[in-house]
Each structure stands twice: as C-alpha cells, then as structure tokens.
C-alpha cells in the first residue's frame, strides 16, 4: 500500500554503509553482527521466570547464557533505527498484511498470523541448527 511515493535509498548504498557499521563494530567493540542468538537468550530469560533451576541445567542455556548482551542491544537498536527512519520520512505504516501476501492469500489476518508464527518458529530452529 502506498509505496509509489516512497523513494528509498539504493540498496548498494544502504548495504555498503551497513558494512562500514559492521567494520566499526569489530574494531571498537570486537563484535560481529548477528540476531538469532538474542532469541535464545530472551526465551531463556522468559523460561527462567518459571523454572530457574531447569534453565540453569540446560546445555544450550549454559552455552548461550540468558542475559542482555551486545547483540541484544543491537537487535533492539534495529527496531529503534527503523522506527526513526520510517517516522522521520513519513513511510511508517501500520500494516497487518504485506501486499504480495494479500494478493495471493487474501485478507485474513488470522491466516497471516498463523503462517508468520509457524514460519518464525521453523526459521529460528533452522538458524540455530546451522549455528547462524
């Protein structure tokens, strides 16, 4: 919806500038970018609220301890950066259905929600399996 007036930057420029950010991260923080470990640490923090003893014993939460780290702040930053960029350029839109999705699968928000949730679950399992 309403994407015709929405002039963005070249993906080459956006990508190259992101590359510069990644280099500076390695230089000044010694950190390589990523996102999926944050989901492990976050769910570990949630599970710990219910059963701290169990989480403390689980191999994967020993390997990726449930805590706020550099990457967690990086992922939070992505949200804030995107919010700033979209609101300052008038491209922020509350959207429940992507255009391409709606054209193919119709206007049901429930259908989109179920597929998006399932897709997220599968994608994250795969990402962790590949250690990505």
């Amino acid at each position: 919806m309403n994407t015709a007036d929405d002039r963005g930057w070249s993906p080459y420029i956006g990508g190259a500038l992101s590359g510069v950010v990644f280099i500076l991260s390695v230089w000044f923080a010694g950190k390589f970018v990523g996102a999926s470990t944050t989901f492990v640490r976050s769910v570990g923090m949630v599970e710990r609220l219910f059963s701290a003893e169990r989480v403390a014993k689980m191999d994967y939460f020993v390997k990726e301890a449930p805590k706020i780290d550099w990457q967690c702040m990086f992922v939070l930053g992505i949200f804030i950066g995107s919010l700033i960029a979209s609101t300052s350029s008038g491209t922020f839109r509350w959207t429940a259905l992507p255009d391409m999705w709606e054209a193919r699968f119709g206007p049901s928000r429930i259908r989109r929600g179920v597929v998006a949730f399932t897709g997220g679950l599968i994608a994250m399992f795969g990402a962790r399996l590949a250690d990505g």
């Binding site: 929405d6 963005g8 930057w9 070249s10 993906p11 420029i13 956006g14 990508g15 500038l17 992101s18 950010v21 990644f22 500076l24 991260s25 000044f28 923080a29 950190k31 970018v33 706020i68 780290d69 550099w70 990457q71 967690c72 702040m73 990086f74 992922v75 939070l76 930053g77 992505i78 949200f79 804030i80 950066g81 995107s82 919010l83 700033i84 960029a85 979209s86 350029s89 491209t91």
Partner: peptide
C-alpha cells in the same frame, strides 16, 4: 559495549529501512 551495540543496531536499522529491505 552495550551502548556500542545499541548505536550499531540503530544505524543498521536506519539503513535497512531507508533501503526498503
């Protein structure tokens, strides 16, 4: 280190949104 992470993420999120990816 946490502040560096937040700044890096904000810049990356800004560029992701600007490039419409």
């Amino acid at each position: 280190i946490l502040v560096y992470g937040l700044i890096a993420g904000m810049l990356f999120g800004f560029f992701l949104q600007k490039a419409r990816v």
